[in-house]
Structures are given as C-alpha cells and as structure tokens.
C-alpha cells in the first residue's frame, strides 16, 4: 500500500496533494450511467441469447438471432441452417460478430475502460490500479482486430436490412403489409447502419489510410462524409444499443403472446 501511495499523482516529485482528484463537479455521473446501462444491456442480451426461444414472431426475426443459422423455428432461417446440429441457442453462433464489433469499438472502449475498469474513471481522477500496460498485451492487444469485426458487421447490417424487407409482410408471409414491428426494425437498421458506417475503421478504410487525398478525390469525398458521421459515433453507438434491445423485446413479447402486433395495413 505504501508503494502505491508513492506512485502517480502522489509520486515523490509531484506536488504534494493527498486527494486523488480535486475535481468538484459530478465526474462520477457519466461512468456510473454507462456502468448501469451497459450492465443492464449485457444482462438482458445474455439472457435472451441463451434462451433459444421466442425470437421469431412471423414475420419478425429478432436481431439477436439474425441470421438464424442453427436449428431455428420454421420461417426464421432465411439463409438455411448450416449449423443445424448446433446444440445451443442459434444466437450464440452469430452474436460473436456484433458483440466483437462493439467490444473492440473505439467509442465503447473509452466508455467501458472508464466505467468498468476505472482506467481512468474520469479525466484527472487517479485510477486505482498500480500497474498499467494499456493495449500492448494479451488480451487487450486483440482490440486491434476491430476492423475485421467491422467487415463482419457490414455483412450483419446487410442481413438485418434484408430482415426489414421481409418485415413488410404479414404473418402469412404475404407482401405489402406493415406493422409497428416493421417500423421498429426499420428505425433499428437505420441506426445500425449509421453506427457501422461511422466507425473509425470505416473512416480509415474509405480514405483515412491515404497519404495523398489529392490523388484520390472520390475516396476523399467518402472520407469527408464518413468523418461527418464519425463525429456522432458515440451517439449512434448508444441509440443502436437501445434500438436493437427494443426490437428484440418487442418480438419477445409478441412471440410469448403478451402483446399483439399493431398492424397498419
């Protein structure tokens, strides 16, 4: 303990101030809210992913289970069932991709390093850890795989977009119908796309990696556009988190028969 006291802001050469921070504002509020909301989402998503049922209410498929590649209920598998022998919930086959994308996301990293690992809890607030190696070692060095998850997230976003198209049907799979679930899925997929396209890896891939913008005018335009989206990446990260959970909850309640879908036409 004595060793810890002599490091960091309490180090021997630093100005002698006992307090870990002299901040008087509510710096703890933001990490606390992040901790509670992310924690709630993780619990909800884990429960839903392991349930393995109530994920399909024709014509709606929960985004947690899409594409449904395991032994799914009738009508849910639009891309076949190559993992039919998979003994566990079908969500567990594909959730690694959106989960990996969000876990390695530059925004989420900031949020959970602060809220869950307190490294640091807030700016100019001393962290409680005595040693720190950042993202230089296993497992955190795997954060560098973000762009590979981004590629997968693009595919998932396409699949979810296809699900929205399929949602313009009725329960009997006749086209030209629409319900509240369709609207929720449409809003969700818009925010999923905004989140996916505003990603820092996307910004890098479309043009950020270049050294000569002038030699690549189209990619420069794309980079400018993605940079605009990127400024709101955190907002899209939060909204899409809520929207994906809301769509799943709506379909869960429909599938259990707790509520009836509001049909517009």
């Amino acid at each position: 303990m004595a060793t810890e006291e002599r490091t960091g802001v309490r180090g021997a050469t630093r100005a002698e101030i006992e307090a870990r921070t002299l901040r008087e504002d509510r710096w703890w509020l933001s990490p606390l809210v992040t901790f509670v909301v992310f924690g709630a989402f993780v619990i909800y998503a884990t429960v839903r992913a392991f349930m393995g049922r109530d994920y399909y209410a024709s014509p709606y498929l929960s985004p947690f289970y899409s594409p449904c590649l395991g032994d799914c209920v009738e009508g849910a598998s639009d891309f076949g069932q190559p993992f039919k022998a998979w003994p566990l919930s079908a969500a567990l086959i594909i959730l690694i991709f959106p989960l990996g994308f969000r876990m390695t996301c530059y925004y989420y990293r900031k949020a959970y390093y602060r809220a869950f690992w307190l490294s640091p809890p807030a700016c100019a607030v001393a962290e409680p850890h005595s040693a720190y190696s950042g993202e230089t070692r296993f497992p955190l060095i795997l954060q560098n795989l973000h762009r590979w998850f981004w590629y997968a997230a693009l595919v998932i976003a396409c699949v979810l977009t296809f699900d929205v198209v399929l949602a313009f049907r009725n329960a009997e799979h006749e086209w030209g119908h629409m319900g509240l679930g369709t609207v929720l899925m449409l809003v969700n997929v818009v925010y999923i796309w905004l989140y996916t396209l505003s990603c820092h890896s996307c910004r890098h891939a479309v043009g950020g990696r270049l050294r000569h913008f002038s030699k690549h005018p189209v990619r420069y335009r794309l980079w400018t556009w993605v940079s605009g989206l990127n400024a709101n990446h955190a907002r899209y990260a939060w909204i899409s988190l809520f929207s994906v959970a809301l769509v799943d909850l709506y379909i869960w309640l429909l599938a259990m028969g707790v509520i009836e879908d509001v049909r517009f036409f």
Binding site: Y106, K110, Y113, C123, S133, G134, E135, T136, L140, I141
Partner: peptide, 10 residues
C-alpha cells in the same frame, strides 16, 4: 508506446 493508449479521450 501507442499501444499503451486506451483512447479514453481525456
């Protein structure tokens, strides 16, 4: 030491 940075944006 770029890898040490955990992008907490302070």
């Amino acid at each position: 030491g770029l890898g040490m940075c955990n992008i907490t944006k302070c």
